[in-house]
Design a protein around this nucleic acid. Structure first.
Lengths: 258, 258
DNA sequence: GAGTGGTCTAGACCACGAA
DNA sequence: TCGTGGTCTAGACCACTCG
């Protein structure tokens, strides 16, 4: 049927991927339906299964297709979902300062969750979490870079070593002591005006701006392990990140039949 | 030498990847040096080239190794650089509201760059950029969600269609009209206190907090194409994103020889 | 039990970089 | 010229899903 052109310099699996990409976009394969099996695609395009699998991999990488062993390759979306990607080191680097900072723990105690905190944690009232409060300092500076409140889930609240000056991210401690793995992190950023109390702790003037950052850490089972809320003085902190396009299906618009 | 164990349920290419991962971490393959060739690795591990390539792919995906055709696979770093990844749709979705917003252009004019703007753009003074100002509205709301200033590079300042209500991201317009491709985006987020003037335009009280977001768009040649600066009232906007671990080399610490 | 995608083998040819 | 990684073929076995 739609054979690939071997004279072009573009790899066959890219040609196959582009064709499938177009066909999904044109609705030939509707969202929720299954693509032809890999063997059928081999026959359709006259290529080997290796080539077909590389092609489908491109679509998976864009979030267009989900592969299900024993079932098939399901179309997830008509248009690409993922276009730009960002990667980063540890969670510490969610903020610019890699591991060149120290968390000075000022308080650490068990806490019955209720009220607005329960909403922030998205858990039921009454659970007992571990609450840790501290100030984070950049190595060479005297003023703190942020005030941090960390909440640890009941399952992990027996964590040890949370005291004094900590140079290791808390989530690493959790991973080490409990053998769990942080699989995902959600982050939310807001702007706020610093109250007199907060401003004093941070060593800045009241009524100035602050960057409020909440990070939620989830384990393999997608359960919340830790919530960390940081407040940064605007004058000492900005959050940077960069994204990059990284797939190969650009500028297609070829003459595929519609 | 270091054969893989076929009795384990973990795929061979993961076993190979983990071994190489450890060997890089232990310094057997120093940063900047070349890994053994794929054929040598085949012999060392007693596996096919397919398996070796899948294994090395894992390392590449973590930024540990760079493949150079005709040269070899070079070690880039001793420890993983990329641990969590985030993907997102268009640049519009850098913010939560996908394409459910409209940019109402209020001004559009050529502008000689100088002073603080030159620093922000990181270009020399004297260049003539196109400056566009507008308010962005969420579809169902009356108050604007942000005030936006967009600066377009001289090469693209002849862009057309920048007026009235725009429902398409500006960078898409650029890609369409000039056939260029946005390859990367840098983003910077700050907190600020809204001046009386800004607050009035946004319809909020003066002295409240605002989220300041600058996005720089770069083309294939890594040249700055567009800078967009948005100011959001804190009460109407927060920035969310999530990251995900997605490699397979976790919890290694097996008994690989050191 | 039939069919799926996941893994894996043993070959092959190519463009490219280095000597 | 030679060896590298990039692409590709034609097979194979497996665990899994589903009827």
């Amino acid at each position: 049927m739609t054979r690939v052109d071997s004279s072009l310099s573009v790899p066959r699996y890219v040609q196959v991927a582009r064709t499938l990409f177009d066909e999904i976009e044109n609705g030939r394969y509707g969202v929720g339906s299954l693509l032809p099996t890999e063997f059928e695609l081999c026959a359709q395009f006259g290529v080997s299964r290796f080539t077909v699998r590389e092609a489908v991999k491109q679509l998976v990488h864009q979030g267009l297709v989900l592969r299900q062993p024993g079932v098939g390759s399901r179309v997830l979306a008509r248009h690409p979902v993922k276009q730009y990607t960002q990667t980063m080191t540890g969670i510490t680097d969610l903020r610019q300062y890699a591991s060149e900072t120290t968390l000075q723990v000022t308080q650490s105690q068990l806490l019955h969750v209720e009220g607005s905190l329960a909403r922030l944690l998205e858990v039921n009232k009454g659970e007992t979490w571990l609450h840790i409060e501290g100030l984070r300092y950049q190595d060479d500076q005297e003023q703190p870079i942020c005030l941090t409140d960390v909440y640890i889930a009941p399952r992990y609240r027996s964590i040890e070593g949370v005291e004094g000056a900590m140079r290791e991210p808390l989530y690493r401690l959790l991973e080490k002591q409990f053998g769990c793995t942080i699989k995902a992190v959600q982050q939310e950023i807001r702007a706020m005006v610093l109250s007199a109390q907060l401003a004093k702790k941070l060593g800045v003037s009241a009524r100035t701006a602050g960057l409020w950052i909440a990070r939620r850490y989830f384990d393999e089972r997608d359960e919340l392990v830790e919530l960390a809320v940081s407040v940064h003085p605007a004058e000492r902190f900005s959050y940077r990140e960069s994204f990059r396009r990284d797939w190969q299906l650009n500028n297609i618009n070829t003459d595929t039949t519609h």
